[in-house]
């Protein structure tokens, strides 16, 4: 699925990325907590969440930054072998991801930004959707691509 050759001039608005999907288990959240060094109890403390219910649920929830990482992976897995790199990430997180949810990320090229000399980039609009069909995150990621 990875693209190995990519040129800014060949990219068109509307270009769709292959979707990616991940099951957000407690193990996935625990590994993210360690890798992010983010040990907020809302992610890792199962008993505390039954009492605190920060998001109105007794379950732990995944890190917002985990959702953002999946959104970045959508681009990296498809374009990185061709020399593309994410340079800016802007997200809005609209629904918590409870443990056990499946998150799917979809994205398409929304804007073209011609700069030349290796500085051209595209803006990719990404939506992360849970297995109830609700958006959990909306984002625009700027991606520098080869000339």
């Amino acid at each position: 699925m990875a693209v190995t050759e990519l040129h800014y001039g060949d990219i068109e608005i509307g270009y769709q990325f292959p979707t990616i999907e991940h099951h957000v288990t407690q193990e996935v959240i625990d590994r993210a907590a360690l890798a992010h060094l983010d040990f907020n109890p809302v992610h890792t403390n199962i008993e505390w969440n039954k009492r605190a219910q920060v998001f109105g649920t007794q379950k732990t929830v995944g890190h917002g930054m985990l959702t953002m990482s999946m959104m970045a992976s959508l681009i990296d897995r498809h374009w990185r072998h061709a020399g593309a790199s994410v340079i800016r990430m802007q997200s809005k997180l609209v629904k918590p991801v409870e443990v056990g949810r499946v998150v799917r990320c979809e994205g398409y090229v929304k804007e073209l930004h011609p700069r030349g000399s290796g500085q051209s980039y595209v803006l990719v609009a990404i939506t992360a959707i849970d297995n109830e069909g609700d958006p959990v995150g909306l984002a625009d990621y700027a991606v520098r691509v080869p000339d």
């Binding site: 109890p41 800016r88 990430m89 995150g137």
Partner: peptide
């Protein structure tokens, strides 16, 4: 503890 993440910007 008790925080919520509304979205982020990173360059």
């Amino acid at each position: 503890p008790g925080a919520r993440n509304p979205g982020q910007t990173i360059e």
